[in-house]
Amino acid sequence: MTNSAPGGQRRALNVTRQDYASAGMAAVVPVMEESLAESLERIETSHHSRADAVMESLNLALVRTVGDPGSVMLETWESWLLAMQVHSAVFAATAPDLETVTCKIRQEERHLPTTGPQTYLNAETWLDAFYLSIICREAARLDMLAQIPVSLLRDFGGVLDEYTYAWVETLQSFWLNRDDLRTHLVRAVDLSAPEQARVVDAEEMSKLRYPPIMMLYRYLRGDVAGFIEALADAVRWHKEYWTADEDRTHNILGVVALAPLAIASLAKANGLPVEVQTDYLPEALLDFAWRGEFDA
């Protein structure tokens, strides 16, 4: 498998995160909490509120992580757990044979009417849901997500690069232990080449989209040295992308390398060493430090 990826710099095992305005971020947390609470109040009846809750829950977790880089504080972990619950709930509510599904969100049972195609239920949101469920070690939710038909994700709207669907199929095949895993993985690698980019640009494809695929490839081969190298590349390129200009440097999406964190969490949970030290991979999330503290 080959792919053109950024190179030419010495790989490092310690990557510092860019500075964020921690005080300013902390100041907006109460406002974000209030907005998210309002969305959750209407999540059972409003698709607009479901879409808002998806976006707001992840943003809140990221903002909390600015001031708590290791995600060691209870409030930060609760925010990540909530983001996982919201993301998985909206996909659970696509079950074709049910009229309503019951999902736990913030320790409350919510009854969500099932839905037809909605623009927020696309493959990108599915990937975030899958990553969050890996990070939170939620096997049952991963089982559910792995059985969402890719055809359904296509129907749910949005124009995405074809690699996205190949990557979804790869992760589903991996989780369900299907025989077609290699086929989907090779296709994901090929379609994540920079020249294949149509919706995202070549830089985003090579620095953000391709690295987690290579991490999974190295993990599946049991290649410890190759995996550590791929993880170091993923984190370094994540920083390069999110510090390329002033706007990106302050973008909240750069706080955590979500996809590499998920694959690294998977690897660490299964005995592979993770030797990259960085706030882009919050330590408490990577180590699942809150194991057993919550009924998710």
Rank of each mutant, 00 (worst) to 15 (best):
S192D: 01
R221C: 03
L281Y: 04
K104P: 01
L191N: 04
W290S: 08
H48P: 01
D52I: 04
R198A: 09
L62W: 12
E44A: 14
I228S: 15
A12G: 01
R236F: 06
A257E: 02
E34F: 08
Y165H: 05
A244I: 11
M1L: 12
L272P: 00
I134H: 04
L127G: 00
E138F: 13
D287S: 07
P149L: 11
L261A: 11
M32L: 13
A166D: 09
V66I: 15
L121Q: 03
A296T: 09
L220F: 10
L40C: 01
G24K: 14
C136K: 12
G271A: 06
T125W: 03
A146M: 08
V28H: 03
W175P: 01
E56L: 15
V15C: 02
L208F: 05
G70Q: 15
F130G: 01
A92Y: 05
T115Y: 06
C103S: 10
K268C: 07
Q107W: 11
H87P: 01
E293H: 14
D190I: 08
G24M: 06
R137V: 14
R248H: 12
T102Y: 07
H184L: 07
K268H: 14
V200Q: 07
S173M: 04
W126T: 00
R187Y: 03
I134V: 15
V31G: 05
A202T: 08
V255I: 15
F91N: 00
D68M: 11
S192V: 09
S39T: 05
P113Q: 10
L81I: 09
Y120M: 12
N270Q: 12
E240L: 15
Q9R: 15
P260Y: 05
R64H: 12
L74R: 12
L220Q: 10
E99R: 15
R110C: 10
R42W: 07
P96I: 14
E109G: 04
M25Y: 07
W175A: 06
V15K: 02
T94W: 02
M25Q: 12
D161H: 08
M215I: 11
L258I: 15
L285S: 06
R187P: 00
V186C: 06
R110Y: 04
M55E: 03
A284L: 06
N177L: 15
D295F: 11
L145D: 00
W237L: 10
L281E: 01
E203F: 01
V256W: 13
N14K: 15
T45L: 14
P194V: 06
L272S: 05
D179Y: 10
S57D: 00
I135G: 08
V54Y: 00
M144T: 05
E41M: 11
E283N: 07
D128T: 03
A129N: 01
R198P: 00
N251Y: 14
I43A: 06
E203H: 10
G158K: 14
V168W: 10
E56I: 07
G271E: 09
V54A: 01
